[in-house]
Structure formats: structure tokens, C-alpha cells
Simulated scan of single mutants.
Amino acid sequence: MVSNNESIALTEAVYYILLSLYEPLHGYGVMQKVEGLSSGRVKLAAGTLYGAISTLLQKGWICALPGDTNSRKKEYEISSIGKSVINNEINRLRELLTNGEQIVGGDL
């Protein structure tokens, strides 16, 4: 179950970071995946990415995977809470699209 705090609108960066973490990835992998998913439109700077990762870890939306203690690369993966957040966001976006199409028309 997702609390009210977790059903807020997501930024594009957070949305794409969560989507990219449906498979375990390290930071640079996330940056590449987000750029690929968005067809190059969204490019994450390292500071933006690692700030978001820190926040997502605190919220419990992603988790750090145990890894090689000698490696600086940490891998992350979306949590079950994060998956609920993504599902809520997809439903919110679907509602926005439906409402827009009803008013403007579907032939944009």
C-alpha cells in the first residue's frame, strides 16, 4: 500500500530512474538507461542522479544491492514500494491523458 506521500507527481528524472531500476544497475548504467528510454531527451548529470538516488534510498523506493566491497560501483534496484509508486504515477498520467483527449480530442 502506498501512503499519500508516495502518490505525489514524480519528476521526469525520478520517474525514469525508477523505471531503469527494474533491473539492477549502477549509477552510470542508470544514466545510460534513462537517456535511452527517453530517446536522448533526458540526460542526467551525476549530481542530479546521486542526489535522487540518496532520496529514493531514504524513502525506501529503491535499495542498494550487496556487492563487492572492493568495488566503488554500487548497484541499485527498485523496491516493492517503488513499484507501487510507479504504478500510481502511470495511472495518474493515464488520467491526465484521458482528460486532455476528452477536451482537445484524440487526433493531436
Rank of each mutant, 00 (worst) to 15 (best):
L44W: 02
E89D: 11
S38T: 15
I103T: 11
I103R: 11
G105C: 05
Y28W: 06
E12V: 02
V2D: 09
L18N: 03
Q58C: 05
T11Y: 06
I53R: 07
Y50S: 10
L108H: 15
K43E: 14
N70R: 11
Y50A: 01
S38M: 04
G82Q: 03
L57M: 12
T98D: 13
K83H: 05
S79R: 09
S80Y: 06
P24N: 09
N70P: 00
E23V: 14
E23D: 11
N87S: 15
I62N: 01
T55I: 10
G67A: 10
E6I: 00
S71L: 08
S71Q: 10
G82S: 05
H26I: 01
M31G: 00
K83M: 05
V30A: 02
A46L: 04
V34W: 06
G47I: 00
N91G: 07
G60I: 05
Y15S: 01
E95I: 07
L65K: 10
V2M: 13
G67M: 09
I78C: 02
S3L: 13
T11E: 15
K83T: 08
I81H: 03
N5A: 11
A45V: 03
S80E: 12
A45Y: 09
E101T: 13
K83D: 05
S71R: 10
T48D: 05
T48F: 00
S39P: 00
V2I: 14
L19N: 08
E35F: 04
S39D: 13
H26Y: 15
K59Q: 14
G60A: 07
S3F: 12
L108P: 03
E101Y: 14
A45I: 02
V30T: 06
